[in-house]
Design a protein around this nucleic acid. Structure first.
Length: 465
RNA sequence: GGCGGGGUAGCCAAGUGGUAAGGCCGGGCUCUGCAAAAGCCCCAUGCGUGGGUUCAAUUCCCACCCCCGCCUCCA
């Protein structure tokens, strides 16, 4: 559904500039996003990033491209192993449960599932092969601890993505217990030799039993599914260093190719102005939000529109309430014009076309959804005005799918429970009798149940408060 | 210390060398059995502070003050 024909400009972390987006083989866009480590329930900060990836993917489609999105699941690392042990579950059992929960949350937020969602543990062979290549060409070495390390001194461009000087990596860094095994402090692990706390978890390799390091999985799987050189790699801004820096080093050294053309990073989220942390008790999940009576649509709207993706977003419950109010206003507008007969819509109008152009122009400017949304609300108000005045309307039935292709709100789709339905029916009967007293007391009863009723030309409408 | 991002109305937030989008909240009016929705109107002489450049700066330059992130756990 190509609706925007403006050239798309995106901010490349590597060049730190806005660049016109040109895929390697248009209209195909090969896109990789770093996915979650599946050891526990993902938090809202994670979803801010995945919502950003979803927005990117939806916009690529809107601008006429055909994205193929691969997002990995990190299903083996210290945390997953520890969580499995704590729950007395096999690693695979623990991670598959967490993946189910994660995908449930994704659905709640109307995030389209990526085309492929490879798990690290299903691709160990690929990683071993890649590590062997790096050992052969001298970019990696086997440590005394039977782990394999990448030698960053063998890659002169190391640090270019993060703008970090290799010198700066030397002093003051936190030092793990096994650091003695490395030649240099900045070297990172490609293959971790087996340790007792790994328990059952491990795979045989030319260097003995062990498991892959974190960074190698994304390199191996992205190149496997998308080619040694592909269009876009994205993730949260915290991944710039060391994760993506390391991916660049090992991938380029293994293939000699450029690896990724465009790096995109989503900024982090704060809660009440502070960094999320367990000690502050401000790490919320999608389930926490639902428990407070908000829906995935409200949360999606907030995380997607409250700030541009490269701007820190401050999550507050007041902000969520504001998002809910805005979504309700959109729902009201939708419900309103959808009651009109088809002939009320005039087909393409100058107002409709002007809105669409402005909407696309904003989005083409590094996915400026907050700005695009400003145009949308102006358009919303203008069409409401036309409705009030019985004036010709832009072709809303044709335009709305384009808008919602970006917002992803879908339908409110919220049927009241039977007891509320019953109260509403009694109220309708009371109103027919013009028994206003009874009518008002039934409204109160409905509100007590957490629902609200309003009277329209077509009768009552019951919806969540 | 190094690198980077910010400070715009009660809250969130976009933006531009020519005089501040949009959302939420709030106030007034119209409409409505009531309520809601919707419409109309109002709500920053002001964009961290102090200088400078300019006919003109929130937007450029300099200095300063705050806040936040990254610098090998992290979306």
């Amino acid at each position: 559904m190509t609706r925007c024909r403006t050239p798309l400009h995106l901010f490349n972390t590597f060049s730190r500039t806005l660049e016109e987006f040109r895929p390697i083989a248009p209209p195909k866009v090969r896109l990789y996003a770093c996915g979650p480590t599946v050891y526990g329930r993902a938090h809202l900060g994670n979803f801010r990033t995945f919502l950003f990836v979803d927005l990117l993917r939806r916009l690529l489609t809107l601008f006429g491209f055909e994205p193929e999105l691969v997002m990995n699941y990190t299903d083996v690392d210290d945390k997953t192993i520890a969580a499995a042990r704590a729950a007395s579950l096999a690693l695979r059992e623990l991670t598959s449960r967490q993946i189910d929960l994660f995908e449930e949350d994704m659905k709640t937020l109307h995030i389209l599932l990526p085309d492929r969602r490879p798990k690290a543990t299903d691709h160990i062979g690929l990683m071993i092969a890649m590590i062997e290549k790096l050992l052969q060409n001298g970019h990696a070495y086997l440590g005394e601890d039977r782990s394999v390390y990448f030698r960053i001194s063998s890659f002169p461009d190391y640090g270019r993505l993060a703008h970090l000087d290799r010198q700066g990596l030397q002093p003051g860094a936190r030092i793990a217990q096994d650091e003695y095994a490395k030649e240099s402090i900045g070297d990172f692990v490609l293959w971790k030799g087996w340790k007792p706390e790994d328990g059952e978890v491990g795979w045989d390799s030319p260097w003995g039993r062990g498991r892959p390091g974190w960074h190698i999985e994304c390199s191996a799987m992205s190149m496997h599914y998308l080619g040694e050189e592909f269009d876009i790699h994205c993730g949260g801004s915290d991944l710039i260093f060391p994760h993506h820096e390391n991916e660049i080093a090992q991938s380029r050294c293994a293939t000699g190719k450029e690896f990724v053309h465009l790096w995109l990073h989503c900024s982090h989220m704060l809660v009440d102005g502070e960094k999320m942390s367990k000690s502050l008790g401000n790490v919320y999940s999608v389930a926490d939000v639902l428990a407070k009576g908000y829906t995935g649509r409200h949360l999606r709207f907030l995380l997607l529109t409250a700030a541009h993706y490269r701007q820190t977003l401050n999550f507050t419950w007041d902000g969520l309430a504001a998002a809910k109010a805005a979504v309700t206003r959109i729902d009201d507008w939708l419900a309103r014009w959808r009651l009109l007969p088809a002939e009320r819509f005039a087909g393409a109008t100058p107002e409709g076309e002007a809105f669409l152009a402005a909407f696309c122009t904003s989005l083409a400017d590094d996915l400026n959804l907050p700005d695009a949304l400003g145009h949308f609300f102006e358009f919303l108000r203008a069409t409401n005005r036309a409705l009030d005045r019985n004036a010709p309307m832009p072709d809303l039935p044709a335009l709305w799918p384009t808008i919602d292709a970006v917002l992803g709100l879908g339908e409110p789709a919220d049927a009241p429970p039977s007891q509320v339905q019953e109260l509403a029916e009694r109220r309708a009967a009371a109103r027919r009798r013009r028994d206003w007293k009874e009518s008002d007391s039934l409204r109160k009863a409905i509100e007590k149940e957490g629902w609200t009723v309003r009277d329209t030309a077509k009768g009552q409408e019951v919806r969540r408060r």
